[in-house]
Structure formats: C-alpha cells, structure tokens
C-alpha cells in the first residue's frame, strides 16, 4: 500500500494479481453478470490507484476493507440496473468453473493467509443452519433489509431478525481469530 501511495504501477499490478479474483467473485455473486462484475473490478482497483489513502489501516484489515468496498459498489450497481435477482436460486450459477486459488500470487504467505481465512469463513457458513445462512446471504449479497427478506422468504419479520442475530453470533464465535476487534473486546 505504501508503494501504491507513491504512484508505483507495479504495486497496483501486485494488488490486482493478489485480489482481483476475489473481487471479481464477490461482485459476480452479487450481480450474476460477468460484464457488470468486471466493471466493478475495474472501478475498485482504479479507486485504489487514485485514492490509496481511502484505506485506513487503523480501522481494520485491508482484505475486510476491500471486500466492503467491493460489496458496496456491487450493490450500488445492482440497484442501478434494478436487476435484483433471486440470490438463493442462482447461488452457484455464475458463468465459469470454480477455481481453487484466489490468484497466482508471488507472495506465498499472503496466499496462505487469504486461503486460511477463506477456508474458515466457508466452513463457518456451512456450519450455520440453512435458514440462518440463507437470511445472511440475502442480506449480504442481495442487499436486502429485514423487511425485504421477510417478504422474499415468507417468514415472519421477528423470525428473520432472530435468524440474523443467531447466525451472526455463530459466525462471530467461529471467526474470532480473524477479527481484529475481538482482541480489543477481550482486553476491555
């Protein structure tokens, strides 16, 4: 990131190689459209290039920030084209085949870190009861509110709220080691 701040294009190339597959995959999961997802990838990395200071290291990990930016930009695009699709019906319907690694990294340590985090998050999501996983995915990847999820699933609003709370609590417990704020919480 420091090299990026000096305008070093090689730094951007490295970041692209490291994270573009992940950024593309998240955007594709939200948009279900390769072309739109590629547009988001371009916007995210150009934003990083033009405004490297938009990432504040004191407020969390870079990967968390990057995922947040990607998700928000993808949801913006989803709303713009008003193509709110049924996320649960097309979960694994994106074009192309799933691949094993995030990218062709020149930094094995970084690759290992991201791979470990991915494995932990996927395992934690898989361990959630299906109803809790569904509401969390509709909220996160579909950008839906409690009320919209209740309308979509036909479940009572209170049930949706409870599922979100329980699901998030389980994820928090499962992923404590990956949360920089957990240690802060414990030390208080």
């Amino acid at each position: 990131m420091a090299a990026l701040a000096t305008g070093d294009i090689v730094a951007l190339e490295l970041l692209y190689d490291r994270y573009s597959t992940l950024v593309f995959s998240v955007s594709l999961r939200v948009l279900h459209d390769s072309q739109l997802a590629e547009d988001v990838v371009q916007e995210v990395f150009l934003r990083l290039w033009r405004q490297p200071i938009s990432y504040d290291p004191t407020r969390g990990r870079f990967i968390s920030w990057l995922m947040s930016v990607t998700r928000n930009r993808s949801l913006d695009e989803l709303r713009r084209v008003t193509r709110r699709m049924r996320s649960e019906d097309v979960e694994d319907d994106e074009p192309g085949h799933e691949i094993a690694a995030v990218g062709h990294l020149d930094d094995p340590q970084a690759e290992l870190m991201v791979a470990e985090a991915r494995a932990a998050v996927r395992a934690a999501m898989t361990r959630l009861p299906p109803a809790q996983r569904r509401v969390i995915e509709l909220a996160y990847f579909g950008g839906l509110t409690h009320v919209e999820i209740a309308e979509r699933t036909g479940d009572p609003l209170g049930t949706v709220k409870t599922r979100v709370r329980l699901g998030m609590r389980k994820l928090r417990e499962s992923l404590a080691e990956f949360s920089t704020w957990e240690s802060d919480r414990v030390s208080r």
């Binding site: 597959t21 992940l22 593309f24 995959s25 998240v26 594709l28 999961r29 969390g60 990990r61 990967i63 968390s64 920030w65 995922m67 947040s68 990607t70 998700r71 694994d92 994106e94 074009p95 192309g96 085949h97 799933e98 691949i99 094993a100 690694a101 995030v102 991201v114 985090a117 991915r118 998050v121 996927r122 999501m125 969390i136 995915e137 996160y140 990847f141 998030m168 994820l171 928090r172 992923l175 990956f178 949360s179 920089t180 704020w181």
Partner: peptide, 13 residues
C-alpha cells in the same frame, strides 16, 4: 468485521 469476512465465502471465479 465479521460481515466483511462473509465475502470470502463465495466460490472463486
């Protein structure tokens, strides 16, 4: 932070 990690659960394309 947990919410942001959810993105990592996507299948890679």
């Amino acid at each position: 932070e947990i919410a942001d990690l959810i993105a990592l659960s996507v299948p890679l394309r």
